[in-house]
């Protein structure tokens, strides 16, 4: 595997929250175009791990290389990585005082210095793609949870990222709204986006993932393609976890 085929590489990553070690020697390589689903029990470090990929969390040991740039506390490396990595959050984190369209154009206009007109054209195209073009001039609070999350996905896509991170994107949604967000993500996967998704949606993992990563207690316990992961998990802890959530 050559360097240009690697989107994200974590090697020997350790992280502590003060005295609590939350990541232990995490090693993970994500190829370009690959879809990786990360699952594991609450507190297993899966959110922390993907938050390290765009430096929302700082790792203390090991190396994280994203798109050929190693993340250090050098501002330039952080900015460079963030330009190529989009992120979608559990609680959407849309700006409540801005319309959906303004949410989508703020960063392109100020970070990429795109003109307002061009930014709005791009934003409307992505809103079309996540099927809420009619909500462009609404405020987030006027949208359903599923629509808000799709707006948040559109906002990320407006920065034209090469890699998308999803941190439990459907966990805050009413059950009947989960589908529309997962469909949007599946469509994005079909279009060839590199994706790292923390999720408990095992149906989505089966359907979309190239690999499933299982984490527990800050370690990657098992990594396997979904068919193998679900039919023949190797580790006891993986089996225990799957028994819990698949029934």
């Amino acid at each position: 595997m050559t360097d240009t085929e690697i989107a994200v590489e974590l090697s020997g990553v350790d992280k502590w929250f003060s005295i609590l070690q939350v990541l232990h020697d995490v090693n993970l390589t994500v190829r370009r175009g690959e879809k990786v689903v990360v699952c594991g029990p609450s507190g297993s470090g899966k959110s922390t791990m993907i938050r390290c990929i765009n430096y929302l969390e700082k790792h203390q040991k090991g190396r994280i290389v994203v798109n050929g740039t190693e993340l250090t506390d050098n501002r330039k490396s952080i900015d460079l990585v963030r330009q190529n990595v989009g992120m979608v959050f559990q609680n959407f984190n849309l700006y409540p005082h801005l319309t959906v369209l303004e949410n989508c154009t703020l960063a392109p206009r100020w970070v990429k210095k795109v003109s307002r007109k061009d930014a709005e054209a791009v934003a409307l195209a992505y809103l079309e793609r996540v099927r809420i073009p009619d909500k462009a001039h609404f405020y987030p609070s006027q949208l359903s949870g599923g629509q808000q999350q799709r707006a948040a996905i559109a906002r990320s896509l407006c920065m034209n990222p090469k890699i998308m991170l999803f941190d439990e994107p459907t966990s805050a949604l009413d059950p009947e709204l989960v589908r529309e967000v997962l469909d949007t993500m599946a469509q994005l996967a079909t279009d060839g986006m590199t994706m790292v998704c923390v999720t408990h949606e095992m149906g989505f993992a089966r359907q979309v993932a190239d690999r499933v990563v299982f984490m527990d207690a800050g370690r990657i316990v098992e990594t396997a393609p979904p068919e193998e992961f679900f039919s023949n998990p190797q580790e006891g802890r993986t089996r225990a976890f799957l028994n819990q959530i698949l029934h």
Partner: peptide
Amino acid sequence: GMHDASASLGLKRWQ
């Protein structure tokens, strides 16, 4: 969450 959103979008601190 607002900080997370802005940071992930690449906004500068002052922005």
